[in-house]
Design a binder for these strands. Structure first.
Lengths: 148, 148
DNA sequence: TTAGATGCAAATAGTTTGCATTTGT
DNA sequence: ACAAATGCAAACTATTTGCATCTAA
């Protein structure tokens, strides 16, 4: 782990490679799947209690700007969860009933990305694809949401 | 406007068609593009000052569960913006530098959605596709983010 | 050496809750 | 009539800010 390429992306973008940043990135890379900011704060504190909360939030913002992670809403509207975007992208299905998330790999969006870059004159570095629906378990539990 | 089909979706799902819900939905349908919760609160208050903040948040949660709207992070990590998903889906490009969003229509994800439904036994009702990158203007302004 | 980043703790939002009252069906 | 939803305002929680100090380059 401690993937050097991601730390390099920080330096290449002109940011210092500090202890706080290294630990935060490490925590997220170590943990599989989504993490809330609270979980990240806890994990960081347990690895190095000298790191302040503010630096954790500042690092999350930075990593988001670099498209290394992405905040998303899977549960309520108050607290986001952060996901790592391993190769600049991430895809999942969110059950709107129980908030379970199912991750999947291929999306076949490469060609769409290229088209958009040409069409809008932007340089794309990543993407997030979220599907919403009712998972199998909730469906069986009898949710009233079948009509169009 | 005041699209009856969306109000019907509320009733069909077993929810009462209240004034607060109607106004909130109306505000979002009227406004083009993304809105922050603060903007929604303001707009609702100016249409009917008797509607309480709590009801607005409760309605936003409800509309999110029904996949009528979707909260996303385009700016910092504190405040989400809500987007209407006209036909159950929405697609945009977010500039990670200036937070401008560019919306686009076609995504060609219908077949992927069908495949996922079969593969994971879920019933999908919508999706959100976000691309991240640097917009033309920010690019020209000389952002240091060109290397891999 | 020095601009950039940190940690602290206080300030600031933003969101949720409990409960009596009102309202849609 | 009655369960569901509301509005209020207080309680919470999460995030941000300012500034002196520290540190990576």
């Amino acid at each position: 782990m401690n993937n050097p390429s991601r730390l390099d992306r920080l330096r290449d973008a002109g940011y210092k490679l500090t202890n706080a940043r290294t630990v935060v990135l490490n925590v997220i890379e170590t943990h599989e799947g989504h993490m809330t900011s609270a979980e990240i704060l806890d994990a960081v504190a347990s690895r190095d209690s000298s790191i302040g909360r503010a630096s954790v939030f500042r690092t999350l913002d930075l990593l988001t700007r670099l498209a290394i992670i992405r905040p998303t809403y899977t549960a309520g509207s108050a607290t986001p969860t952060y996901v790592l975007m391993p190769d600049g992208h991430h895809h999942h299905i969110v059950c709107v009933q129980c908030h379970q998330t199912i991750e999947f790999e291929d999306c076949g969006l490469g060609s769409l990305a290229e088209r958009l870059e040409g069409e809008f004159g932007v340089k794309l570095t990543g993407h997030l694809l979220e599907f919403y629906g009712i998972c199998g378990a909730c469906s069986e539990a009898g949710v009233v949401d079948d009509e169009v």
